[in-house]
Design a protein around this nucleic acid. Structure first.
Lengths: 142, 142
DNA sequence: CTAGGAGCTAGAGTCAACTCAAGGTCAAGC
DNA sequence: GCTTGACCTTGAGTTGACTCTAGCTCCTAG
């Protein structure tokens, strides 16, 4: 009893991963997929679960702000075969750090925005105008 | 005793806000600044603390992913003068929600990445290979 | 066996958000 | 009053990441 590996056409993979068909082909052209995607005799791509998982991982990297060249570096390490796992780990850990920093920075920017909207909320709910930006007043100052 | 308002040249504003001089001029051209920036008789821009604060707020919005057109909408409301504070508040609150969702989504993607790097860490530290991607094995499957 | 939706390639086009270039002008210190 | 670094405008160029086009071929359901 051999393990059956499910195969997917590009449209299915697009549906599963949320990556457009065009983008999937472009990912391959750019070297983001560490193996050559197998083809049918007619030339159509055949994806398996491992490639789909890889693409999912790529989208996590991409969605967290890793540039395509960064993903390509990772793909190149994987394509080079076993032996460089420490380098792959270093790359992922560096990115993890970058993502945590990005989240922290988003939270900081968010608090600036919250401060401002609190001012507006006070104005709208209570009718006060303190701290609310008024371009006319500003022009008068200038 | 009148309040003194500090004035800044564009280079200082760039230094304070981290926005390049080119970008500051471009912000103005795109209508992101709700007032006309005052000029010296010679035509050079003179920024005051309110404009600097506005630019800071803009960068918080931009850094949290608000597109320039969104910031322009906000600037247009402010430029229209008092009376539309509820609309400004709605815009900010919608963006706050979007940022919180973005943070949540980043955290989800981060956990996918952490799962993968944990696999590599186990491999690197313990010498196991379970779950580690190997393009040769994949090719053999194909 | 055929219709038509899904796939194929190579290369051009798009979009946001700057960034730079050319060819000047302004202003603060010596 | 001159030098020099900062500033000015308009418009073109860049970058990253797709997205679309043209003109095909494939393949599966009826």
């Amino acid at each position: 009893m051999e393990a059956q590996h499910k195969r997917y056409a590009i449209g299915e993979v697009s549906h599963i991963t949320g990556v457009s068909v065009h983008a999937l082909r472009w990912f391959e052209r750019e070297g983001l997929i560490p193996i050559e995607i197998p083809r049918t005799p007619g030339g159509q791509r055949v994806f398996d679960e491992d490639i789909v998982y890889w693409i999912t991982l790529c989208t996590s990297l991409r969605d967290t702000g890793m540039p395509i060249v960064g993903i390509k570096q990772f793909a190149d390490l994987v394509a080079a075969g076993p032996g460089n796992e420490a380098a792959r780990l270093a790359l992922l850990e560096a990115h993890e750090k970058a993502v945590r920093e990005k989240i922290a920075s988003l939270e900081e920017s968010l608090s600036t925005i919250i401060t401002k909207s609190a001012t507006y909320r006070a104005h709208v709910e209570e009718g006060t105008a303190r701290g609310v930006w008024d371009p006319v007043a500003l022009r008068a100052q200038g």
